[in-house]
Simulated scan of single mutants.
Amino acid sequence: MKKNSAVTAQTKQNLLDAFWDLYCTTRIEKITIKEITKRAGYNRSTFYEYFTDVYDVLEQLENSLIAKLQELPIQQLSAPGDPFQLQALVNMYSQHSRYLMVLLGDHGDPAFQGKIKASMKPMIKEILVARGAKDGFELDYTLEYALSAMIGILSYWFNQENGPTIEKLMELLAELSSEGVMRKLM
């Protein structure tokens, strides 16, 4: 007998939501399958139909966010005059801030930032090389620097109670991108 795909998707989402509720306040090594299934209202065998363990839940959640990043129209991420204009990334970040704030925060997965950069860097690099950028260590390090800065500033912004508007933040990022950090500070 084949299961209803809508019910299956909802069951998996309920388990993910229960995990997420726990992960927001508890380190992953302290989360148990029993807690997840109790919170979601299922038994352990249901959990194992979708996940192997709590780390698999986190991995699947992170992979779904990475997939959404890879769906972004990368051409919007790199306008010809400003290769690090990231309005599309900010929009995606805003839509999924519930997850990204925690995953990129102090109690999140330390490897997640690396996963984001590893998924985005080749796509942005390809566009920049197609536009005439020289492929070499300078481009690689510049992309690493820029992506680290963007992810860091977005994480910082989302965790501020009285942060600037998104428009002001984008304005600052554009200035930093065009003027350079040290010139902006001087």
Rank of each mutant, 00 (worst) to 15 (best):
C24S: 10
T25K: 15
T25Q: 15
R27L: 12
E29P: 07
T32R: 10
T32C: 08
I33R: 07
I33A: 04
K34H: 13
I36G: 00
R39A: 01
R39C: 06
A40R: 08
G41I: 06
R44I: 12
R44Q: 11
T46K: 11
V54Q: 15
Q60P: 05
S64T: 09
S64E: 04
S64K: 07
L65V: 01
L65Y: 00
I66K: 08
K68D: 05
L69T: 04
E71L: 06
P73W: 02
Q75R: 03
L77E: 05
A79P: 14
F84I: 09
V90K: 13
S94C: 11
H96M: 02
R98L: 15
L100Q: 09
L100W: 10
M101P: 03
V102D: 02
H107Q: 13
G108S: 01
G108K: 03
G114R: 12
G114T: 07
M120P: 07
M120D: 11
K121E: 13
K125N: 02
E126T: 12
A130E: 04
R131T: 06
G132Q: 03
A133D: 06
A133W: 03
D135I: 06
D135Q: 05
L139C: 00
L139H: 05
L147H: 02
L147I: 13
S148Y: 00
M150H: 10
M150Y: 10
I153V: 14
L154D: 02
S155M: 01
